[in-house]
Simulated assay, not measured.
Amino acid sequence: MTSKPKIVTIGGGTGLSVLLRGLKHHELDLTAIVTVADDGGSSGVLRQELQIPPPGDIRNVLVALSETEPLFEQLFQHRFETGHGLSGHTLGNLLLAAMTSISGDFVKGIREISRVLNVKGKVLPAANQSIVLKALMSNGEMVVGESTIPKHDGKIKQMFLEPPDVEPLEESLNALKEADLIIIGPGSLYTSLLPNLLVPRLQKELCRSQAPKLYICNVMTQKGETDHFTASDHIQVLLDHVPNLSLDYMIVNNRTVPKTILKRYALEGAKPVDYDKQRLASYGFQVISDKIIKYDKSVIRHDETILANWVIRILAMEKLKRKQDLYDK
């Protein structure tokens, strides 16, 4: 009996959740390493009041990988809109906080909730503690806090973690060592991806891993983070922060966005990420361009089915390469 291909995904936010919704329908051994840098909204309140890592990104990934009834998923994602002290909180965040209190540990709490939700795969925080994200701006100003960084005008020069020597889970390091494919993104470049990649031992193991590495590029720029960014600009930021990172594949969108949707995003200061083909080619990895987006009520999302199918194709290509290498020897 052949074992399932081991896939490690790294990220946070809605992008990672969308990808995992597609991957869970395939015979894969999935591990998601998720950011714990969020300090806004419900997660920020629970983080501050209960001294636990922020549960929001973890919650979204758990729901994405769950195989429960849709009503239970809806219940887990329910956000209270009224009630003193409850308003703004999601039930899933509160349950994760409660399970952390019961088990005495955030990671144990995630494991227990994973059992309840019948999660297909492992969900691991980038660290078993909260991380404070800092951004050094091009004007020399230091901005502190994941939720604060996008609100500042100006270009981000460098990202930092506090504490700088935060430790990852051994389970995450082992997953990277055993991976058949490592996927970075999709997700906010500075506030969802880099908080994971800047964890020192996690970064070291990522760069040391012999597994092929795939980066899935965002399809829209983000105001305060990636204003006017091209696809290659995303790559350059990754390499600036993770100099030893060697990518093998990148997936970019080439589907045109309707003008009506563009107008709505323009109000938020966002526009499609330009697929600058020539500059991307200079990096030396394989660039896959496809129509990887869909529209949901004028909101652009990655298409989880198309992304998952590309992951399966990449695994097949890598398998053929290994066979060819053995033949050549």
Score class of each variant (00 low, 15 high):
5 P>S: 11
8 V>Y: 04
8 V>S: 06
9 T>Q: 04
9 T>V: 04
15 G>H: 08
16 L>E: 12
17 S>R: 07
34 V>A: 09
36 V>N: 01
36 V>S: 00
36 V>F: 08
38 D>W: 09
43 S>V: 12
45 V>G: 00
51 Q>L: 14
54 P>A: 15
55 P>I: 02
59 R>G: 02
59 R>K: 02
61 V>P: 07
64 A>V: 04
65 L>E: 01
69 E>Q: 08
71 L>Q: 02
75 L>K: 02
76 F>I: 06
82 T>R: 13
85 G>C: 06
91 L>I: 10
91 L>Y: 05
95 L>K: 10
96 L>I: 15
98 A>R: 09
102 I>N: 00
103 S>F: 12
103 S>A: 14
109 G>C: 09
114 S>H: 05
115 R>Y: 05
119 V>C: 06
124 L>I: 07
128 N>H: 02
128 N>C: 10
129 Q>S: 15
136 L>C: 00
137 M>G: 01
137 M>K: 14
137 M>N: 01
138 S>F: 04
147 S>M: 07
149 I>V: 10
159 M>D: 10
159 M>F: 02
163 P>G: 08
163 P>L: 09
165 D>F: 06
169 L>I: 04
171 E>H: 06
172 S>W: 01
173 L>P: 06
175 A>P: 03
176 L>R: 06
177 K>L: 14
180 D>V: 12
181 L>I: 13
181 L>N: 12
183 I>L: 11
185 G>S: 13
192 S>Y: 08
193 L>W: 11
195 P>M: 06
199 V>A: 07
201 R>Q: 14
202 L>G: 08
205 E>Q: 15
206 L>M: 12
208 R>C: 01
209 S>G: 13
209 S>D: 14
210 Q>F: 13
211 A>E: 10
211 A>K: 03
212 P>H: 09
220 M>C: 10
222 Q>K: 14
222 Q>H: 12
225 E>K: 09
226 T>Q: 07
231 A>G: 10
232 S>C: 09
234 H>G: 04
236 Q>C: 03
238 L>G: 09
242 V>L: 03
243 P>D: 02
247 L>W: 02
251 I>D: 03
251 I>V: 14
252 V>D: 06
255 R>C: 08
258 P>S: 08
258 P>Y: 07
258 P>M: 03
259 K>E: 15
270 A>Y: 10
272 P>D: 05
279 R>V: 15
286 Q>A: 11
286 Q>L: 14
288 I>S: 07
289 S>E: 15
289 S>P: 05
294 K>L: 13
295 Y>K: 00
296 D>T: 12
298 S>D: 15
301 R>K: 14
309 N>Y: 12
311 V>L: 10
311 V>H: 06
312 I>G: 00
314 I>V: 10
315 L>Y: 06
326 L>M: 13
326 L>Y: 11
